[in-house]
Amino acid sequence: MVALAVILFAITLLTIDLVIQARQKKYPLMSPSLRSSEKADVVRMPKSVFFHPAHTWARMEGADSVTVGLDDFIQKAVGAIDKVYLPMIGQKVKQGDPVITVHHGDRKLMLVAPISGTVFALNNDVLDNPALIAANPYEEGWLFRLEPELLANSLSLLTIAENAVSWIRTEAMRFREFLAGQTLQHATLGATMLDGGVPVANSLEYLDDSSLRKFEDQFLR
């Protein structure tokens, strides 16, 4: 009896909830907050990391340790990353050297090291599960750590905080223009852009190989 009553009560509440949800969907303007589907045109730009113009970032962890990763913008532009290749431990990398490879299906992009130094640690979790980059490219999605060389020199090329924010806005504009200039493989992307809709997410999926190389040259070097 009690069990039946409790379950019936719960099912009633659930039904009421579904009805309320269904009705609210007709007036989505009633809840003026960020919905997850709209998040694609939002990029995370933490104020504590330095951004390289080629969309990688560096964060000081201590005197001899800098964490490196790729930024939210590129992560969203590429779409789901299936595979990451990193430099090996002990390898010396130079700022601007393309040392990170990311795969999206059969597409491949190379990204550069944001600063110079010697690699001493890799993020094995990301190698196992590149989806961590999408979850948060600045925390669990970091790529490798290095011992920096000529740090001050390296940093002069990077931007941080407000500068980084205004840089990423120009990047987004540039990216839109870039997309507009390419022959798109897919009609929907163009349509979305005309709508003033999602400008970034997964866009690369619609580019052909030559456009992809152009993108690499113009944005990742």
Binding site: D41, P46, I168
Partner: peptide
């Protein structure tokens, strides 16, 4: 939610296009 303290770091790339409707 890990998300929660990141939101202040978020940058919107497109101007907000949300019609203002009086409730």
């Amino acid at each position: 939610f890990v998300d929660a303290h990141e939101e202040k770091d978020m940058v919107r790339l497109t101007p907000v296009m949300r019609p203002v409707v009086e409730e």
